[in-house]
Design a protein around this nucleic acid. Structure first.
Lengths: 125, 125
DNA sequence: CGTCAACATAGACATTTATCTAAATAAGAG
DNA sequence: CTCTTATTTAGATAAATGTCTATGTTGACG
């Protein structure tokens, strides 16, 4: 009980730019507040149309796409806009207007944080 | 064009027991069918109560927990059962009855596959 | 200013979902 | 077989959600 404050190396698996969200799901039970915030992010990816839109943005050249590039997912244009807004509210996308077009891009740290809650958790068995 | 079949090393970042689900979200746009299947998994973790239950199972000693161990999340016991069923239908949990109790455990390959869709995707910017 | 194009907002509507209570099933103890 | 405990199923209900059409907003271009 002498080196409590000294060593911040206890979680070495987390890369640099990862948002400080929550521990891996296997580490300890999430609190109610943690679950509330984190579930909101997973929920944002829990709709097929939104997941496709997200994938379209994430895989687009330059890491960003304007709405006109990704509007072909089988729903009306206002519905696309609605889903993009939800992804933005969840913190997964950010948007910027440049002239006539609005460009969306992924928020890499948030995605990485979500991924680590799952991958850093796997080999607990 | 001579070693097409020889080298399965083209996706070296995917560990062994990972379920063959979908590519990283940054690799290419998901098809409608892929999005449908994958969104169902993310959706399962998109509810605060379910996420807590999942975390409780995942972090429990031995990688499994009986329902009686994890029923304290603020909702009624039938609601807990309902959510566990959903997690099971999504492929994230499996269950086994042993005597009086039913034990739930995480499906590591599915979790890893979900994690990789996010983490293998991050540094595309 | 007027018009067109890209995108967002508002409101309506049908479906899904999370939750509860009540009842059913499963298994061990006496 | 009966009683008790653990868990699931059934049915009801209020709230959330995804989608649409119609309309508003913003910026570029004559």
């Amino acid at each position: 009980m002498s080196n409590i404050k000294a060593l911040p190396l206890l979680e070495p698996e987390v890369p640099e730019g990862v948002a400080p969200c929550c521990p891996p799901l296997t580490e300890r039970p999430l609190t109610a507040e943690e679950a509330e915030r984190t579930a909101a992010m997973f929920k944002a990816l829990g709709d097929p149309v939104r997941l496709r839109l997200f994938s379209l943005v994430a895989s687009h050249e330059g890491g960003e796409a304007c709405v006109c590039d990704i509007s072909d997912v089988g729903v009306s244009q206002p519905t696309v806009s609605h889903h993009l807004k939800k992804l933005k509210e969840a913190g997964l996308l950010s948007s910027e207007r440049r002239g006539t077009w609005v460009y969306y891009r992924v928020e890499p740290s948030v995605m990485a944080a979500m991924g680590q809650m799952l991958t850093a958790a796997a080999p607990a068995a």
